[in-house]
Amino acid sequence: MMGMIPLLIIVIIVIGILVFSTRTRNKMVHKKGKFSYSQRVYWLLSGYVVILLICLILNAVQPVKIMDGLKKVNTADLERESLNLYDAAVEGSINQEGSKFLRKKWNFNYQGQQLNLAVIQDENIDAMVVVEKKNNNDGKIEAEFYQTRSSYNGMDITELANLPGMELAGDQLTLLNPKRSEIKFSQFGNTFNIKQFTGEPSLFSEHHSEFSGGQRIIYLRIPKDLELNYPENLNLQFVE
């Protein structure tokens, strides 16, 4: 019942407008101008219809750009990709098998004996960290970010996500979460009087959506003897 109240208010406003607009009729109807009042009304009505028709044409021509803006993907493929990348990462073969998912690369020169891996306080890094120890001590830290494709309702949204960052200061390497990206989708449905005959479910009941986040891996290659300290809550794994 409470949900009805705003609706009722709207209905009352509408009725008020309708009644008010018809009350003014008698004053308006005898106005003489170049065109009579009724002629002006029909001009206005025609103008309104023309605007609606222009919108119809704009929609028929233009939305191609909007709808084809995102590639279609198969969710099953994404699952497989994601698992394969994980396997490749923990086996240390990510630079061969995962090369097409490489999104970003960092190189740091580092001569210290210890490295503290850190995240900004109270944040969880939205990726898994995999560390590979190199065979030698070349004084270089190589970091790579891999990400498999992610999708929403079968559309590829990988490119819309921002990339994480990394900063080396002193003996601390800080992992930075990507800037939050917000994507607005709009979905149009038929009006109730069409759905009634086509048997489509109502927009209110149909909220079927599917999201696949994709695998995100930060891969670090560090010198053989570098000692790595990291916070406990970090999802970190060493290459076997």
Partner: peptide, 27 residues
């Protein structure tokens, strides 16, 4: 919009709004 929903995962926030001309027909 006549309805909406959202999903947020990690650093991605997805908002979906549903639109239809139901109001226009009813009015």
């Amino acid at each position: 919009g006549v309805g909406g929903g959202g999903i947020s995962s990690g650093s991605i926030q997805i908002n979906v709004s549903y639109f239809s001309a139901d109001f226009v027909v009813a009015f």
